Simulated scan of single mutants.
Amino acid sequence: MIRFILRRTGSLVLLLIAVSFITFTLFQLGPADPASAACGQECTPERVAEARVALGMDQPFFLQYADYMRGLVSPRMIGAPGAESVCQWPCLGKSFQTNENVSDIISRSLPYTLSMAVGALVLWTVSGVGLGLLAALRKGSPTDKFIVGAASVGVSLPIPVTGLFLLLVFVNQLHLLPFTTNEINSPFGAQGPWAWVLNYLLPWIALAVLFSASYIRVTRTNMIETFDEDFIRTARAKGLAPRTVTFKHGVRAGITPIVTMLGMDIGLLLGGAVLTEQIFSVPGLGFTAVRAAISGDLPVTMAITMLAAFFVIVANVAVDLAYAAIDPRVRLQ
Rank of each mutant, 00 (worst) to 15 (best):
A80R: 12
A150N: 12
I147M: 02
G140A: 01
K139F: 08
N101Y: 09
L157E: 03
F146S: 13
R70K: 13
S152E: 14
S109R: 00
I106S: 02
F170P: 00
S103Q: 09
L131H: 01
P158V: 02
V126M: 11
W124L: 09
I159H: 12
F179A: 15
T162N: 02
P90M: 12
T113A: 04
T98C: 01
D144K: 08
T181C: 12
L164V: 14
L92C: 06
S85M: 15
T98P: 00
H175G: 10
N185Y: 14
V155K: 09
L121H: 10
N185T: 13
A151N: 03
D144A: 08
G119I: 08
F170W: 07
F146D: 02
D104Y: 00
S95C: 01
L114K: 03
S103F: 08
Y68A: 07
T181Q: 13
Q173G: 03
I78A: 15
S109K: 00
L92E: 05
I105M: 15
P81L: 05
L133R: 01
R70G: 15
A80C: 02
N182I: 13
L131A: 07
E84F: 07
S95K: 01
S74Y: 04
A80H: 05
V169I: 15
T125Y: 10
S115E: 02
N185L: 09
K139N: 13
A135T: 03
S107Y: 04
V129A: 08
S109H: 00
A135S: 15
T162G: 03
I184Q: 08
M77T: 14
G140D: 02
W124V: 05
V161P: 04
G140M: 04
F165K: 02
K94A: 12
Y112I: 03
F179E: 11
I105G: 01
F96G: 05
P158M: 03
Y68W: 13
Q97E: 05
N182R: 13
N185Q: 12
F146K: 05
S156N: 12
M116C: 11
S107K: 11
